[in-house]
Simulated scan of single mutants.
Amino acid sequence: MLFPNVNDFVDCAAMNAFVGYKSRYENPVTAILTEVYGTLNQCHELKRRKMLCCLPVLYVWFISRVSKGILNATCPVEELLQCKPEIKGANEWAQLCASLSEEKIRWCASWQQGSHIIYHCGNYPNVPLMGIRCCINYNPLLAQRQFGYPMRGSPTSASLATLRIYYEEGTFAEVLHQIRDAWGNIVRAEGDPRSWTVDERIPYNQWLAARVKAVKLPFKLISPDSNVEKRLLNAEVQQAKLLRAELERTKQENVTLTNDLQNLQQNYANLKHDKMESEWVHEELIRKQKQDLTSVNAELRWKSMECGITEISERVRRDLCGEFKRDKQEALEKL
């Protein structure tokens, strides 16, 4: 996919992609994706130019979308090896492509579940890519159904801003620096706050039909159905109803969770207040007990002092009585 259709020839750009992977652990997937988009764009601009370098990856991607799929497959290549699609000629491929409808396409493969889609990088409205021959961007809004996200409406012109630079056309160093800096600030689908990227007033299928007429795809439906547009519109309306119901249910859950959170916060405040009040009562009780203990100790000290004074007075009284008796006895003896 990175090599031109020349036998025994590898150019320096392709070698740089593998050297970057080997020495700097740079993922070559972005380079391959850039080559695919760049080749598709170049073929569309030049009209009827054959594609040679990107056919394997496009074939794997296409088969993964129109086959029934393998439940335990972990990547599209493994799925391709297990399903073993039939070999078809040009007419058979043309009939298959012309007969495809929205119901026949497997939008979200099992090996893509759990992927985190990148919506834009830096100041770019989409995702810029650097390849070995060109720089180009891809618009994740057009591929979000493949990652399990619904098509909420038609993408706006601002979200589909074009970046297309082929290195042989002139200077490109400044653009490469800008793209490298933008990849330092990627925004994924779940964290994208932008609302101007999608116009929900215009259904996606209506926008797609207008794009088909503008691009002028070179085939027509083999069995045209006059009710296809009406059926697609009804399906889109039904999908919108389901999304509104899901949004309403999410809002109700949000209100319930908000009320529960407020109740928990109130309960926490009440418990905190009760705890503070209990601590204050406990401190008051301890302070009062300390005061009572101090008063009891003082009273005991006074009583102890009073008892000591009483004992001393009694002893003095006894001594004085004894001395008086002795003096009286001596006086009687003298008489």
Results as ranks from 00 to 15, higher is better:
M1F: 01
M1D: 06
L2W: 07
N5K: 04
F9M: 11
A14G: 10
M15A: 14
A17I: 12
V19G: 02
S23I: 07
E26R: 05
A31D: 03
L33M: 11
T34A: 14
E35H: 08
E35C: 03
V36I: 13
V36R: 03
T39Q: 11
L40R: 04
E45V: 09
L46T: 08
K47S: 15
R48K: 09
K50E: 13
L52G: 01
P56C: 00
P56I: 00
V60P: 01
F62E: 03
I63A: 12
S64P: 06
S67E: 08
L71V: 05
C75S: 15
P76G: 04
E79H: 13
I87W: 13
K88F: 06
N91Q: 08
N91L: 08
C97A: 15
S99N: 15
E103T: 12
S110R: 12
G114K: 01
H116N: 07
I118C: 11
I118D: 05
N123I: 00
N123H: 01
N126M: 03
V127N: 01
P128A: 02
G131P: 04
R133Y: 06
C135G: 02
I136S: 02
Y138D: 03
Y138F: 10
Y138W: 08
L142D: 09
A143H: 14
R145T: 04
F147D: 09
P155L: 13
T156W: 08
A158K: 11
S159A: 12
R164A: 01
Y167V: 01
E168Q: 14
A173K: 12
R180L: 02
V187M: 13
R188W: 12
R188H: 15
E190L: 12
E190W: 09
W196M: 01
T197L: 06
V198Y: 00
V198T: 06
E200A: 10
E200I: 03
I202H: 04
Q206G: 03
A210F: 01
K213A: 02
A214M: 07
V215A: 06
K220L: 07
L221P: 03
L221E: 13
I222Q: 07
P224Y: 04
D225S: 12
S226R: 09
N227L: 08
E229M: 01
K230G: 08
Q239F: 00
L242P: 02
E246C: 02
E248Y: 06
E253I: 14
E253G: 08
L261C: 05
Q265N: 13
Q266W: 10
Q266H: 14
N267T: 09
A269M: 13
N270G: 04
D274L: 01
K275M: 05
V281F: 12
V281T: 14
V281Y: 14
E283I: 04
L285D: 04
L285H: 01
I286P: 09
I286N: 15
R287S: 15
K290H: 11
E299H: 09
L300Q: 14
R301G: 09
R301Y: 13
W302D: 14
K303L: 09
T310M: 13
S313L: 11
V316W: 11
R317N: 13
G322K: 14
G322S: 15
K325N: 15
Q329R: 15
L332M: 14
E333Y: 11
